[in-house]
């Protein structure tokens, strides 16, 4: 057992008796890893505790909390998952009063797999593993360095492969709406593959991810066509940071900037005419 897994095991054992459950990953039959709610009634199950491959735990948390809003739970979350939880809290999708965060710090290879800029938690009081610095995102750099016609060609080709399985939306921890604009015929044409250009599906989704994408890359992971859609989200997140000084998942109080009035100096950074 790795050091990190052992420490995680210990951290969970410590809090488990006082809680209704701890949400973490469990290795199941055939070695398939999935989110699991460990309980004090069955502490022996912790032997099957798993870390990798990561699975979207916050989504499961939301489902549990909808059914049991008063449950006292802990959740094992990586940096991205913690950001997801913070954003869900800010969007009134869950409460934090009864929730303990156990921050699992990613290791270098994991961060590189996710091209992650922030593979660490910032809010969790209990921390497992050593926080490391973010890693580079070569793909995003590569795509953003393309010329305008090259970009157009690149994305045309990528979106051409989209089979509109809605997998990226379904797995996104931030897509918690009851109905979805992507299923509205006004915005996304139905019954046509490959999609008409420009891809309304991907562009509308990218706009909806503004100040919302937590950079977990679950969407890219789940995409059967390997579309690197998080590149768009990453670039927009950089703009939102530059223009409005907003970082998704960082601050519990800060509201998404596009909802609010302009602050001093912001207008000048939008590039709009005077």
């Amino acid at each position: 057992m790795s050091d990190r897994l052992t420490s995680l095991h210990e951290a969970i054992e410590k809090v488990l008796p006082d809680l209704d459950g701890v949400l973490a990953l469990k290795s199941g039959p055939g070695g398939i890893v999935s989110p699991y709610l460990f309980s004090k009634e069955h502490p022996e199950e912790l032997a099957k505790l798993a870390i990798w491959p990561k699975e979207p735990v916050p989504d499961t948390l939301k489902i549990i909390l909808r059914a049991h809003p008063d449950a006292k739970l802990a959740i094992v979350c990586r940096g991205c998952e913690e950001r997801g939880i913070v954003e869900m809290f800010k969007h009134a999708q869950l409460g934090l009063d009864n929730l303990t965060l156990i921050g699992l710090q990613c290791e270098k290879d994991e961060a590189e797999f996710c091209r992650c800029a922030k593979p660490f938690t910032v809010h969790a009081k209990t921390i497992v593993g050593q926080p490391i610095e973010g890693v580079a995102d070569p793909l995003t750099e590569q795509v953003s360095a393309l010329s305008q016609p090259e970009k157009l060609a690149f994305w045309k080709q990528e979106f051409e492969h989209c089979i509109k399985c809605y997998g990226c939306r379904n797995i996104c921890p931030q897509c918690f709406c009851n109905i979805c604009a992507l299923e509205d015929e006004k915005w996304v044409e139905t019954g046509r593959l490959p999609m008409a250009k420009p891809s309304m599906y991907h562009l509308v989704r990218a706009m909806h991810m503004t100040a919302k994408c937590v950079a977990c890359r679950e969407c890219e992971e789940t995409c059967p066509a390997d579309i690197p859609m998080a590149v768009h989200f990453r670039l927009i997140a950089r703009d939102v940071k530059e223009m409005f000084n907003y970082e998704t998942g960082a601050d519990m109080e800060q509201k998404p900037p596009q909802l609010l009035v302009l602050e001093e100096g912001e207008y000048d950074r939008t590039g709009l005419p005077h």
Partner: peptide, 24 residues
């Protein structure tokens, strides 16, 4: 009062998205 403030914050992001997608 401040409806257009939201325009000033929403539309620049959309312009950027167009740019990133290779649309002028």
């Amino acid at each position: 009062s401040t409806g257009n403030h939201r325009t000033a914050k929403r539309m620049p992001v959309l312009k950027k998205l167009l740019e990133y997608t290779g649309i002028e």
